[in-house]
Nucleic acid binder design. Structure first.
Lengths: 239, 239
DNA sequence: GCAAAATCTGCGGGTTCCCGCAGGACAGGA
DNA sequence: TCCTGTCCTGCGGGAACCCGCAGATTTTGC
């Protein structure tokens, strides 16, 4: 019997998902709903569900965090992410937590109902990973060498964004001060922080905060990624 | 004849709104839909609509910007904002653009359908402003003296967040360098940037970027507020 | 196995940031 | 009128930042 857990905070979207699931998977059993990440985790644990479709960006605990704990407890859970955005920050966040060999999917809410149903079948019954074309693009970029950032650069960006000093970063990453600053320079370069549109526009920008601003507006970073990093930081220091 | 314009990027929400509008305002005429802020502006202009219900946070042009241009052209337009969030950044953004004596509303998507319909009637036929309870709270905070920021502090926060240096801010705001730094200090204090959880945790944070991080996670700022500020900046310098 | 490329590291410096101290301007109240 | 509170301003200095230069170390490609 295949039970399905829906984790989605928007009531409209939730009932839409429910219908879509029942339509796409007529052989399925119970369809359980949860309205935020926290409740989703609990439901996944108590109902021993192996098929989850969920939103990223929820209040109580977002999809990435919920997925992480679900996967930690049962790495063979199949999860289909259904999100509004294909922000690089989300894509990276998901890629970071998917366990070895797990099957998952990532479709955008803007996709057609058909695509959603197809993805449901592919992921849940065929055990195939289904990544939306657009999301794929972001993945490529974030791995490849195009204007995207490498993992090291991304990590330092996050550290800067939570507000750490160079020295603190050096300590955390077991690097020298100078190395941290080198990486920062790369970062500045990649993010085009040095733009000089008019004349005499030098010294207008504080590169450090400017980098964060640019990353935010390019969706390389988003607020929830920063909050996540903040929690990690507290945890690693608070022991 | 009362025509209504719906500006909302999510298809599900859009059709839900359409139904709600027809149910709440049986006397209404056409119900026009637009799927982003830009198209919304165009529709408002060509259809000469005087009643708009719209989302904040859309891709092409967000609700605040769209509302600003709509109101600039016809300040007596009645606009009901229907949003997922009550971020201080949004509430401030709206408050900043509503013209003298205009009637508008702000209800959260999490509110019941009844509340939404009631708000539709109140704003559109009774010409009464309807602000969601929760949003009201944020408004109070952002005006009052509680942990909220004053306007000056908020402005400097935005300037810092887009990445300007102290000197640049001083020039823009026609202040001395020292005054800018004074305001920054107030800001740091209000945002609790000086937190010292453990021992020897001094020098861990770069106050400037830390302030941005804190503001983001407290929803005092959000990415779209930064983008808006950025456009303003370019415009004021690019001439 | 070797050369090339990429990284890490220290040094030195110019600049910006952060802020205590102190004096001046200006508004409101006894 | 004087006093008090608030805001702006300059000065000075310690710390942090940004970065060119150059040698050491590691990784990569052939």
């Amino acid at each position: 019997m295949m039970d399905v857990l829906i984790v989605e905070d928007d009531a409209l979207h939730r009932s839409f998902l429910n219908e879509a699931v029942r339509a796409a998977l007529p052989e399925c059993g119970q369809v359980i709903e949860a309205e935020n990440g926290l409740k989703g985790e609990v439901q996944a644990r108590t109902s021993r569900v192996e098929h989850v479709v969920m939103d990223l960006q929820m209040n109580e605990r977002n999809g990435i965090e919920a997925a992480r704990t679900i996967w930690r407890e049962r790495p063979d859970t199949k999860i289909l992410f259904w999100s509004n955005y294909s922000d690089e920050a989300y894509v990276r966040g998901v890629a970071r937590i998917v366990p070895e060999g797990a099957t998952y999917g990532y479709v955008l809410k803007s996709a057609s109902e058909e695509r959603l149903k197809l993805a449901l079948r592919s992921v849940f019954v065929e055990s195939q990973c289904v990544i939306d074309r657009e999301v794929r693009g972001i993945q490529q970029k974030s791995l490849g060498n195009s204007p995207g950032l490498t993992d090291v650069e991304y990590e330092i960006l996050v550290d800067v964004a939570v507000g750490l000093t160079d020295k603190a970063i050096a300590q955390r990453k077991h690097l020298s001060l100078r190395s941290v600053q080198n990486r920062l320079q790369q970062l500045y370069e990649k993010l085009d922080v040095y733009e000089t549109p008019g004349q005499g526009s030098e010294g207008w920008f504080n590169l450090r905060t400017r980098a964060v601003a640019v990353a935010l507006s390019r969706k390389v970073l988003n607020a929830s990624a920063i909050e996540r990093a903040e929690r990690d930081l507290r945890q690693s220091r608070g022991i």
